[in-house]
Amino acid sequence: MSKRQLFIFSISLVLPITLLALKPEGKLKVANIFAPVLLYPVKTITGYLQFLDITNQRIEDLERKIEILKLKNTKLGENLQLQRDDLEVTSFQLVKSQIIGRDPSNINGFLAINKGSRHGLNVDQAVICSDGLVGRIKYTGDNESLVETVENNAFSVSALDARTNVHGMVKRFKKLQFEYIRINDEIFINDTVVTSGMSDIFPSGIVIGYVRDIEMKSDLFFKCIYLEPAARVNRLYYVYVITNNPDDRKMNQP
């Protein structure tokens, strides 16, 4: 090594020794001055690599979300199909009618409505409201009809308990009763009683009322079940008449 080389080497050593002797704050200041310039290519490369990494992670996340959404979509599609089937079962043709009169001697037993045979209404068509069964048409004129309600004595409809599927007959005799229920059938308070669809008049699944009281009679076979009607006849303003019976259509299908 020549003297010149040795001299330059010695001078070169001053730089690292000076830098090493600096306090941490001083080192950071020096780094802050030179790093943006000298490390620019490194930052560009690492930034690009990080961008690729983040993009890759995002793609993986999105793919995961797509798979979850696909699964959800399949389930929703199945549910929608089920609901369509349900709708087909309950696709009533309804005629909205306004109550225009009540029988003064039996204020909740009979209702006069403003639609008649001109509107496609016929005797023995079911009448419902948003809460459940109201009754059936007893008489039709051209532009008006008379509805026998569940509150009329001697009103009867074939019914079943929605929870247990126990069949019986709902009849009105002073109170609405669910009859022909054997003493060992499991019917509980607050059970929902719906139409069974066994008659030609009422489609199945319309809520008639709720079990409010159960009495054990002296009868050895049946117990006495009292219902509260679902429809509050004395508060009704509009009713809907079912002009088709979807159960009949289903039964007529091959």
Binding site: L13, L15, P16, I17, T18, L19, L20, A21, L22, P24, K27, L28, V30, A31, F34, A35, L38, L39, V42
Partner: peptide
């Protein structure tokens, strides 16, 4: 050393 400023000067040395 710029990449790791806490030991600035060490790698040069």
């Amino acid at each position: 050393d710029l990449y790791n400023p806490s030991r600035l000067g060490l790698n040069i040395l």
